[in-house]
Simulated scan of single mutants.
Amino acid sequence: MAATDNDVGEALAGICEAAAALILPLWKSGVEVLTKADESPVTEADQRGEKLILEHLARLFPGVPVVSEEDASEFGTPDRIGPRFFLVDPLDGTKAFVRGDPNFTVNIALIEDGRPVAGAVSAPPTGETWFTHADGAMKRIHGGPAVPVRVRAWPKGQAVALVSHTMKEETAVKLANEYGFDLREPMDSSIKFCRIAEGAADIYPRHGPTMEWDVAAGHAVLEAAGGTLLTLEGGAFTYGKAQDGFRNGWFVARGG
């Protein structure tokens, strides 16, 4: 393997940034939107980004399997997977991308024994990239110097939850009562994990479906920054659920 375990996160960050540079010119360009079998949208940006990522991973990490969103939507997920593999979402937040909103991301995570041990998330419109490192979680902007990021302590009376744009008011109120947050901000994509990781928000309760590639890279960054992502019961949130088609259950992501 060309990259050591200590710098996998930084290597993945470089791949995410290369894909982001490819995707960004297609944003707000009137790119054609197709519909996948599950009725979700897909664009040329998703497809081109995934092709670039798969090429880079094959070169840097030969022999490590990859489960990737667009390939899975076209050919199905594998029936089984080994203990070490990559999860890739080349464009998380395709609906935001199509709307012209800036909250979409490029995501790569390395899974080992059911856990995300390295990951990177890049936000093409802002040039921000978050990634795991031996010393914790890091962030850089437009390829500049990387700086450490860390979750913040729960700010009593000012705790911010990140929620879906489509969440109904009654659902948001119920979640606020359940989790004790005071403010909420609607946001798309895995950038929610990164905002919590850098101390800009505090909690992301997800009472709804996701796929493993939607979550894994953000999970890796959040944990490296001192946060947690757990099941609603407080158990470990695991990956490699081939028997379930790599679908996730509900979860709660938290900062400090």
Rank of each mutant, 00 (worst) to 15 (best):
F86S: 03
E233M: 01
A225E: 11
R99V: 01
I141N: 05
S122H: 03
A137P: 10
F237T: 06
K51Q: 14
K168V: 02
F193E: 08
N177K: 12
L12S: 04
N177M: 04
H165C: 01
A220F: 15
P116R: 11
D202G: 01
A120T: 10
D71C: 02
G144V: 09
A3Y: 08
K168S: 11
M1D: 08
A11L: 03
T77K: 09
A176T: 01
S68I: 02
L91S: 11
A45L: 03
G245Q: 06
V33E: 15
P65E: 04
R99P: 01
T171S: 12
D79T: 08
Q243H: 12
G127Y: 10
T231D: 14
Y239M: 06
R48D: 10
D71Q: 13
S190H: 02
E223Y: 01
L230T: 15
P205T: 11
R59E: 13
A217W: 11
K241W: 05
L34H: 12
L12F: 02
H165F: 13
E128A: 06
V163L: 15
V67E: 11
D79C: 01
G82H: 06
C194D: 09
A18M: 12
S164P: 11
F97H: 09
E185V: 13
A13Q: 02
V151M: 08
D113G: 00
K51V: 15
Q47G: 00
P62I: 04
F251L: 09
R184L: 15
G208Y: 13
K51P: 04
D202S: 03
E55A: 15
L24K: 13
R195A: 00
V33H: 05
E44P: 04
S40R: 08
D214C: 11
V163R: 06
T126N: 08
Y179H: 14
A37E: 15
I111L: 12
S164Y: 13
K28N: 14
I111A: 08
M167F: 05
D7W: 03
A201C: 07
H165W: 10
A176V: 00
F104A: 05
P78T: 05
L162R: 04
M138K: 09
V147N: 10
G9V: 11
E128V: 01
A201L: 06
R150L: 03
R140V: 02
D214L: 01
D101E: 15
D46W: 03
M211V: 01
D92R: 08
D135A: 13
F97G: 12
P148E: 07
V117T: 14
I53M: 13
Y239S: 06
A2Q: 13
A3L: 14
A2T: 12
T43C: 10
S68L: 06
E17I: 01
L175H: 00
S29F: 04
G157S: 09
L12C: 10
P65V: 04
G180S: 04
P116E: 12
G256C: 00
V31Y: 03
A134D: 06
Q158S: 10
A253Y: 11
M138P: 07
W154G: 00
G249A: 07
L91C: 11
V42M: 08
L162A: 02
G82F: 08
P148F: 07
T105W: 12
A11S: 14
V64K: 04
V64F: 06
